[in-house]
Amino acid sequence: MSIAQRMIRPTVNATFIHQLDARVKIFLLLATSVLVIFLDNPKSLLLLFVFVSAAALSARLPAKNLKILAVLVLLAVWGTMFSQALFYSKLPRTVLFVIIHPKWPVIGELTGGLFVYKQGFTYGAVQALRFASMLTLGLLLSWTTQPRDLLLGLIHFKVPYEVSFMTVTAVRFLPLVMNEVRTVLTVQRLRGYRPLKSSNWIKLIRTSLYTLKPILANCLRRAGTLAVSAESRGFRVNPEERTYWRGLEYSYMDRGVLWGGTVFLVGIVAVKVVYLLYFNGVYYTPFLRELYGLAKNWL
């Protein structure tokens, strides 16, 4: 299995994470993504990442999946560190080395100099914890949930039926299209063309055209039959009265996680909002001073 194939394929297992309702998982992912936006404190961001990683470990994913995850997380963290090392603009900052000297003609004047700052690395690492948590939780979700459950979850979140139908179709053809892309590239190689081995971007564009053309032509042909097949099974004849065979039922565990998560999230967000109101000078009351302290130290 290629890395790409492994990335898009969910695992089947009976762990706590696997058994959670798809809606709960989507909720947790959204909640976490809101949380990482509201959190500023390195301690809390790290804590969150540790928690998410522990969840990932508890899902007993295959070692290769964990490896992919680890590599992606490390790359994302390093990438953020790299960019922040260059663009860090708080003080104090220590220049490690100079990339563009501000006194260089034109480029120096335009950029105002480009330096690598020591503090930027640490700052980037802390900020990257947000991405790391999101990345881990995202892949955890997709690796432990069948796409159809996720889609069913989305329908419960009021995604229009046409859109969810399109998504189902798109997901269904994912492995097929991946195979087709591989085949097309192989065909090109067997005809003496090296599609990906080039630093010449014109050639890369040509490769893209050569590859997309047969794939998309195939999509167009396929769409004709699929449309007839869907319509002959009553697709869109009465979208208002459509029913669903599979329902999602919350278990006690799901409800627990859902409520717990909501309370936790609302709590954190509320404290942070109150703190931000104080911080920005909009509202202050001495009653909440303890809370301000808490927010300052942890959020």
């Binding site: 189902v168 179709t169 997901v171 269904r172 396929r222 097949s229 099974r233 869109r236 599979r246």
Partner: peptide, 18 residues
């Protein structure tokens, strides 16, 4: 080119659902 769903049961349910 006639199957939309990722799981057999969903595919068969598609028509009756509609």
């Amino acid at each position: 080119d006639q199957l939309f769903a990722t799981v057999v049961e969903d595919e068969v349910a598609f028509g009756p659902e509609n």
